[in-house]
């Protein structure tokens, strides 16, 4: 029942080194037409052919959602990762052709909010850039608290401060500055919504603090894309297609299924959206459920797996694919 949106063939129009870790990429349509308008917080999946290995990584769109002339993403180089960000940093240059997905939003602003309170850590700034552009146009109230290791690594901070002045507060680790979260969360009017995007530890800290101060869950929003973790290789039987595949150490189960020519649904490829949920028909071993989607009950039961981020260790794993 999965209905895929059309993919967008793009050309790399610009690559900018933002700082020592981050590069910005601008994509325009190869046919010169307009990109779809999107909503602040949306991401696209970038489809890359890394010397024969297909990589599909999700990145938040950071450009103004109303700018249909092109899309921009910012990519932080992850030297220990599986290679997607390294490929973008090392091999993707202006003029190159790529394919991206239609925008999908798993981190939307709550339209009812009286005020949007945003907390960003490092590269987690990117979804807020498109959200702030949209809010500025519509006159929405927001406040951004942005923390980074150093001023050099605080991508786009100068631009944000220049445009939005007091609405943006910057906190630099190397200057010993830290967000006074307790104070911040205790002075917000009823109807404020809290958003956090950044490293796992920061998301946990913000969500826990908000809960301890009596913030309702439905007013706290976070986004964390999980990079598929690396691990030991493992074998999987695909019952419907009658194939047995081996998942490599730096490959995700979803990628291995795709590489075997078996069609599998997906959207975010980061364990968040639920689209790739697959029935487990047999499991003799341990599934490492790395997703944010399945309930704890489902994880314990080992009847479902999210092949985009989860792995397996043991004798046999049989999937309904």
């Amino acid at each position: 029942m999965s209905v895929g949106a059309p993919k967008i063939p793009v050309r790399v129009a610009e690559v900018v080194e933002v700082n020592a870790l981050i590069k910005r990429f601008r994509f325009v349509r190869r046919d010169g037409g307009p990109m779809p308008v999107f909503s602040g917080g949306a991401h696209v999946v970038v489809d890359m052919d890394d010397h024969g290995t297909r990589r599909m990584n999700p990145y938040s769109l950071m450009s103004d959602p109303a700018d249909t002339s092109g899309y921009e993403i910012s990519v932080r180089r992850d030297d220990a990762g599986r290679g997607g960000s390294l490929f973008l940093h090392r091999h993707v240059t202006p003029g190159m052709d790529l394919v991206i997905s239609s925008p999908v939003n798993l981190f939307p602003l709550d339209a009812r909010a009286r005020k949007h309170l945003m907390i960003a850590g490092g590269i987690g700034i990117t979804p807020f850039l498109s959200q702030i552009a949209a809010l500025s146009r519509l006159g929405g109230r927001f406040e951004l608290h942005y923390s980074a290791r150093t001023r050099d690594l605080a991508a786009y901070a100068d631009d944000l401060t220049a445009r939005h002045g007091d609405k943006v507060r910057l906190y630099l680790d190397d200057q010993g500055q830290a967000i006074d979260l307790n104070r911040l969360l205790q002075g917000q009017p009823l109807g404020t919504h809290l958003y956090v995007c950044g490293p796992k530890g920061m998301i946990g800290w913000v969500c826990r603090t908000a809960e301890s101060l009596g913030w309702p869950k439905s007013a706290v929003h976070s986004e964390e894309f999980l990079a598929p973790p690396v691990g030991l290789p493992f074998q999987v039987q695909l019952a419907t297609s009658g194939k047995t595949i081996t998942v490599g150490p730096a490959q995700s189960l979803l990628e291995a299924i795709e590489a075997a020519g078996v069609d599998a649904p997906y959207l975010c490829r980061g364990g968040a959206c639920g689209e790739c949920e697959t029935d487990v028909l047999g499991c003799d071993g341990q599934i490492a459920h790395n997703d944010h989607w399945l309930t704890d009950e489902q994880k314990v039961g080992n009847t479902k797996i999210m092949p985009c981020v989860s792995r397996f260790q043991g004798k046999t794993l049989i999937l309904d694919r």
Binding site: L185, Q186, G187, Q188, P189, L190, G191, T192, L194, L213, G214, W215, A219
Partner: peptide, 10 residues
């Protein structure tokens, strides 16, 4: 009371 309230009020 609601108009004056802040987030965190139960």
């Amino acid at each position: 009371v609601l108009a004056d309230a802040q987030m965190g009020m139960q």
